[in-house]
Design a binder for these strands. Structure first.
Lengths: 196, 196
DNA sequence: CACCTTATCGGGACGCTGTTATGAAACGGG
DNA sequence: CCCGTTTCATAACAGCGTCCCGATAAGGTG
């Protein structure tokens, strides 16, 4: 029989953990297979038997990221006022993004050149935003928001949040701004703009 | 005296043109100095004598991109209604981004890993959005928009536009959406949300 | 006209990357 | 004890950005 497997689920976990650390600490450029393998005391082959390729590894990180995102957004309690609920989700969205900023840039801004999420990962991504879709749909049904397709308002809120976070992380914005306050105001204004 | 210069302004132009083409046609990954040099029938050294490094080259592309952006936004006629003016700028923003989508992803989503714009390029970037700042400032002065610092509303509009464009280019969004219409509605809702 | 000086440029070397072929290693069964 | 099979690590390959160095080519000089 063969030699014992070492490219197992445990190694998979250690690889993902270390990859996360590398990404968080030094960015996408520092995430190389050789370095990763050395740090976890294995060979680059491990990544290929466990993830298929580097994009495959990144795909796993991507999925992990959206699962955390999912949990975070799902844990936001609803207060009943659709506009305020959208704001709360938006704040949670920003918290989560800032807590894992490098991962966020992998998830939303193509920080790893060759990577495209596979279908399953994309589905995870859309599912993570379900709470927003729900709040918006309820807001429309309750007559608070304008009577347009749910996705129009949901995407608008999402884009507003994503745009702000993205600009903040990119450090493209004027430095004197109080991001947190401006962010909340902005999300609220955007949601208010959709009132019936 | 030395041999005649061939790493001159003309070559600089050809390099930038070809780099743009490569970027537009095949994305950031296809933009390699070796290929670029071969295509323009020179050596990689040319990039170093003309731009200093690959990030230097990208910096030039970045600046070019924002100059086009600048012209495009500055050419938008104002109609006097601040909300509609913001919408018009937003539509021009999207047009410009979609027309040069790969370049946009270099400008806003770190598509080239090692690249950071230098101070001059960053200044160009901020200047390009001056028309938005002006419209918003006038809208506040006219009492149409809420009495908050100009940058709060301007950044909010910008982020909304950027977020939508970014999600659209990333193909993260549900496919059934009519982007153009949803985009305009969204920008308008966001601007309306800032009414006094 | 030949030579030398000097700025300039292209080829190649270096160390890195992702990927893959190959050979060594480690085990149970005959 | 050896073999067969499976599994993994090493090393090779092609490509990357960067940089050094030798070849180049023109003008001033003897």
């Amino acid at each position: 029989m063969p030699r014992p497997k070492t490219h197992d689920e445990a190694l998979r976990g250690r690889l993902l953990d270390r990859a996360s650390e590398l990404l968080a600490a030094e960015g996408a450029k520092a995430l190389s297979l050789r370095r990763l393998a050395t740090d976890v005391q294995t060979s680059t082959t491990a990544v290929y038997s466990l993830f298929g390729s580097k994009p495959g590894l990144v795909n796993a990180l991507y999925s992990e990221g959206f699962q955390r995102f999912d949990e975070r957004l799902r844990s936001v309690p609803r207060c009943g006022d659709p506009v305020e609920d959208v704001v709360r989700l938006g704040l949670a969205y920003r918290d989560s993004a800032l807590a894992h900023r490098r991962l966020y840039s992998v998830m939303f801004t193509n920080a790893v050149p060759g990577f495209e999420p596979d279908d399953q990962a994309s589905k995870l991504a859309m599912n993570a935003l379900q709470p927003l879709w729900d709040v918006v749909a309820d807001g429309i049904a309750a007559g608070v928001f304008a009577d347009v397709p749910t996705e129009v308002i949901a995407v608008s809120s999402w884009a507003c949040a994503h745009g702000l976070v993205s600009l903040e992380l990119n450090e493209t914005l004027p430095r004197e701004i109080d991001f947190c306050r401006a962010y909340e105001r902005s999300i609220r204004a955007n949601a208010n703009g959709w009132r019936r």
